[in-house]
């Protein structure tokens, strides 16, 4: 796997505020990295250092081998960047704006027209191409920002909260776009929305108070959740207590909870010790006691539990 982005001990201090504190990670071609953290964790500041908008206090950021501080031009040429809030010139039309950005990137004439066409098609902007950006809805404005970022088909995409403030359909569209483009690019997407991670990310870096607290695949993180491999099952209400006592006798079970009761059927949740596999044991045990299980499901684990545990006290 080709490494496209590399951050090494990146640090930024604003006066007394340590916004980013020794952040290191790298992103390979084809990888979508979810950059997670509560508000004020330092996501935007990290991205701003990577894209050359903010100079690091210390540490380095490289894009395709080019140091952003030493060779800003070469690094910036290889990045498509959607800043937080998708700023754009309100007095321009999407077409005029993309022309401006394209020409600033040295693309002209027919080639520029072709690329604008591609970017418009991918982001669905054709219908508003000539309207002033300030008259467009938030969703369209976000798309203008995305179109601008992908215009030059950059090997590295940096998207700061690309779905923030969008409605569910728009969020879905943006995620689809990110997925489509991920094949030959390295993409970093910041978010504080956890569902995003499952939807688009191959890898997750969680940051809290400027420091990385986790760098793993989403499944690995889910595995750290206390509910990973927990068994959720439903039994007749009359036998619920009996079933719970039985399950508690298993030494692979840490805890059994009674969650809800609907139409005389109780839902139980059995939490494993160290993520042990409980499903077979529980069903055999209850079968042996003649307790009928209506439904049984093994939980993958909840990212938000993990997220909360890792970032607790970190939100501003």
């Amino acid at each position: 796997m080709q490494e496209m982005v590399r951050l090494e001990r990146l640090t930024k201090r604003f006066g007394a505020v340590q916004a980013v504190d020794g952040v290191s990670f790298s992103v390979a071609r084809g990888e979508v990295l979810g950059f997670l953290g509560p508000n004020g964790a330092g996501k935007s500041t990290t991205m701003r250092m990577l894209t050359g908008f903010v100079l690091p206090t210390s540490g380095t950021a490289r894009v395709m081998g080019f140091d952003v501080v030493r060779e800003p031009r070469r690094a910036k040429e290889r990045i498509g960047y959607l800043p937080e809030g998708a700023p754009s010139y309100g007095d321009m039309s999407p077409l005029g704006f993309l022309r401006f950005v394209g020409e600033m990137r040295g693309i002209h004439g027919k080639e520029l027209a072709r690329r604008i066409g591609v970017a418009f098609e991918r982001t669905g902007l054709e219908e508003v191409a000539n309207r002033p950006i300030e008259t467009l809805s938030k969703g369209f404005r976000r798309r203008v920002g995305l179109a601008q970022a992908i215009l030059h088909d950059p090997p590295v995409l940096v998207l700061d909260e690309p779905t923030d403030g969008l409605d569910p359909n728009q969020k879905h569209e943006v995620r689809k776009l990110v997925r489509e483009m991920s094949r030959d690019k390295a993409i970093i997407v910041s978010t504080h929305i956890l569902e995003e991670v499952d939807a688009v990310c191959d890898r997750v870096v969680i940051i809290a108070r400027g420091r990385i607290v986790a760098d793993a695949r989403p499944e690995e993180l889910e595995r750290r959740s206390p509910t990973h491999n927990a068994v959720r099952l439903t039994v007749d209400r009359e036998r619920a207590t009996e079933a719970m006592d039985a399950i508690r006798t298993l030494n692979t079970v840490r805890e059994v909870r009674r969650l809800e009761e609907v139409n005389g059927v109780a839902t139980l949740l059995a939490l494993p010790v160290d993520g042990a596999d409980l499903g077979a044991q529980v069903s055999q045990l209850l079968y042996g006691r003649g307790i009928r299980i209506e439904r049984l499901a093994v939980e993958r684990g909840r990212l938000d539990d993990v997220f909360r545990e890792l970032t607790q006290g970190g939100s501003a």
């Binding site: 894209t51 960047y81 800043p83 937080e84 950005v101």
Partner: peptide
């Protein structure tokens, strides 16, 4: 308006 972030991250 924050467009400075866009402008200063272009290769110019």
């Amino acid at each position: 308006t924050g467009t400075i972030e866009l402008l200063m991250t272009l290769p110019a």
